[in-house]
Design a protein around this nucleic acid. Sequence first.
DNA 1: CTTCCACCGGAATTTGTGGGCA
DNA 2: TGCCCACAAATTCCGGTGGAAG
Length: 393
Amino acid sequence: MSEIIDDLIKKTGTVSKIFMDREVLQPDYVPDTLPHRENEIRRLAEHLIVVARGVRPSNVLIYGLTGTGKTAVARYVVRKIVEKSASLGTKLKDAYVNTRKVDTTYRVIAEIARQLGLMIPYTGLAVSEVYRRYVNALENWGGLHVVILDEIDYYVRREGDDLLYKLVRINEELSSSKVVLIGITNDINFVENLDPRVRSSLGEVEMVFPPYNAEQLYTILKQRAEKAFVPGAISDGVISFCAAIAAREHGDARRALDLLRVAGEIAEREDATEVTVEHVRKASVEIEEGRVYQTVSFLPLHQKLVLKEILEIVKNKGSATTGEVYLAYVNRARELGYEPLTQRRVSEIISQLDMMGLVLAEVVNRGRRGVTKMIKVKPDIMKNIEEALKDLG
DNA sequence: CTTCCACCGGAATTTGTGGGCA
DNA sequence: TGCCCACAAATTCCGGTGGAAG
């Protein structure tokens, strides 16, 4: 046992043969330069720079698929301008909220207020109270608050656009201070469901981020790789292989960087001196397997039970329906001494499992035999799921 | 052409927990 | 102390639905 630990310490404790600075490849790392986004940076900066004269710029809406640098550009530009504002003597602060992670109205405003320096308890207050405190704090402070709302499409889909409406009109309540919104979304169509007033205000300025192509991904990876890896530990060919894989999957730079990092980690684990194409292939598999295993093992009890029964039925018959799964689930739950959930709930759980990519659930119409979900499981992840489900016995 | 199955999925409501404020 | 609040999971209620069987 202790040899294993010693061995690990030796490996990580000594200088790595592969990594020079693995931080550079972490998803939350914001690099000093963002290649192929120079135009977007300039446009956003030009738009926001009027804050230097104490003027409030109009709100901005940024579109683009995942991993196209929307968040990085927005945060980068805002950060730079806030840094500059100190020397210009303008009062400027920023707030960044990912509304997919911070996913209720209360938590979004609370988070914005907190980043202005307020102390807001994480529950107990009314939403309107938090809003009031935020407005008061803004008035007392008398500056300009740049608020970045990331992934707002997810938020609006769940909670509606009431909060957005309030935020968009917040300046009417303020005299000494101002708020600027920068909205970021993956979904171009989501604006159509917005209240017209919100749409026109938020969309005063719109920016679209196109996906990266393989060539651009290559330069991005190359730039990071030079900082992240020991010289000679990775070749251009391997980098472009990563870029090609990611480009095939909609030009997602985050994916490409993940791939590079995990490939490096595998190489390190194997005690290799160089990252090879083979390591990248393994990384690609490992990322997927790890994702499946992780999501399954963190599933709550009843979700696991449902998934288990789905697997059971699919193994026998190739596919399952909601009714079959529910029946099997109820029996199993009783057997184990748990009170079964209702069918309505189980139906929802199946939909959730589908969204997580663990099963494929398609709503099908079987004529007189009713409407149900045809549930299947991709054969290549079945073993992974079973492995993660072992503890259910 | 009509019926009618076996669910779907939206909406409202409940339950239980953790907490704020005066 | 009493009243108000947020929130996730679950329940209750119920109006659809679309195509194979009749």
